[in-house]
Nucleic acid binder design. Structure first.
Lengths: 233, 233
DNA sequence: TAGTGGTCTAGACCACATC
DNA sequence: ATGTGGTCTAGACCACTAC
């Protein structure tokens, strides 16, 4: 079954990708310039430009003014990762979503989180610990700090009723975010909340979001053992 | 310090993002159509189109013909992850890179890997186990299967001399790849090769790449304990 | 069926890096 | 100095889908 390309630009993208994969154009080679390709494919130069820019973003091509377009030698390729919303993730897997707030109170900010949020240690932030369930089995534990300066109104919300992430995301779009993946051995609390054994390897996502008022929230998400995060191709 | 936008489209992207973050345009709101914005910003419609498409890819806007452009209600935002090349990663951290091939031989493919590669169980593939070092401390262990059908010539390569990933990436560009992150407790072999204790939590990246001849390679990369993978914003 | 975004075109000017 | 990609424009036609 041959895919029908959605647009001329897409068709050119595919064809160029094919030539690279089939090694008609080798790594390091210079490919014909936009004007030539426009003639070959019978389209305007802008269309070729769009197609080649796609491949450049993908990391397959290197483009430079005057030097022309070359097939990348050591392509460090990129993938997009969709930051999922827990509820959608759980419900998408055909399970029923629920969550339980284990703790919600104003607390002084510890040093490590303060550094991540670029705030001063000891500042009073909302500290929230939540367990997210799929069909009443623990799916993820969340340890979140919320900065009421950047998210005014957060003090008044009962996050037992409204999922903190959803409330934040709906009310405070962010400008910038830091994100890191790591693996951690479950500590005693993780183990209890995730109903697993201490020491189990957990995939941990640490994320801090900012708007123009500063850090909005910083959260540590620890997934249940065996969880896999898939990159969308 | 105000950033000078590189292009008109970029400037429009920033301005629209600002309006959303500052809640001039609320989540769910319909924003003016392209023609109106083109007049407002004094540019051609194509320029507005480009700017808004960027924000739509980012997940901030929902665009539909006839319905117009709306601010996304529950933005499931996306991030791009750069798949790093081990050597560059190590050298980028100011360490000296080296690697050691622990095993390289033709072996029958186990069932789980066969499923990932869409090949038949028991097929003869090149099986490679490698440890990557930074300043002679273990950085990552690699367990790789290479399909000589899709990567002809691989049988003849001495991967002690040439890093398998670099050889593959230079010679066999891929069309498609599957990728998954997870956390695993170090097994006995992981622990030995990474010079850590058994049971330590390891960040594991499992990746399979394909070209038009089928699966090229499937690899499990286990990073040293404490490793963090950062998403590039 | 009409309004909106999706795409394409032909042409133009510019910025940059190499020649 | 000059060839290449980067960007923009004005206009056009089309495809989708909400109305």
């Amino acid at each position: 079954m041959i895919e029908k390309p959605a647009s001329k630009a897409q068709a050119i993208t595919s064809e160029v990708r094919r030539r690279i994969v089939d090694r008609e154009w080798r790594q390091g080679d210079r490919i014909p310039d936009e004007a030539e390709l426009a003639v070959e494919f019978g389209v305007a130069r802008a269309t070729v430009n769009k197609a080649l820019q796609l491949l450049a973003e993908e990391g397959l091509l290197d483009r430079k003014r005057r030097a022309g377009t070359h097939v990348t030698v050591n392509p460090a390729r990129k993938t997009t990762l969709t930051i999922p919303i827990v509820r959608e993730q759980v419900e998408g897997a055909g399970m029923e979503y629920s969550h339980r707030v284990v703790a919600q109170k104003l607390s002084p900010l510890p040093a490590d989180i303060a550094a991540r949020m670029a705030l001063t240690e000891g500042a009073a932030l909302i500290h929230l610990r939540t367990v997210h369930y799929g069909d009443s089995r623990p799916f993820q534990v969340e340890d979140r700090w919320i900065n009421p300066e950047a998210a005014p109104g957060a003090e008044l919300i009962d996050f037992q009723r409204i999922n903190a992430n959803e409330w934040l995301v709906r009310n405070f779009p962010w400008l910038r975010n830091d994100m890191a993946f790591s693996a951690e051995n479950a500590n005693a609390r993780d183990a209890r909340l995730l109903e697993t054994r201490q020491g189990a390897a957990l995939l941990v996502l640490q994320r801090t979001t900012f708007n123009d008022l500063g850090a909005i929230t910083s959260v540590r998400l620890a997934f249940h053992p065996g969880y896999q995060m898939l990159a969308t191709p």
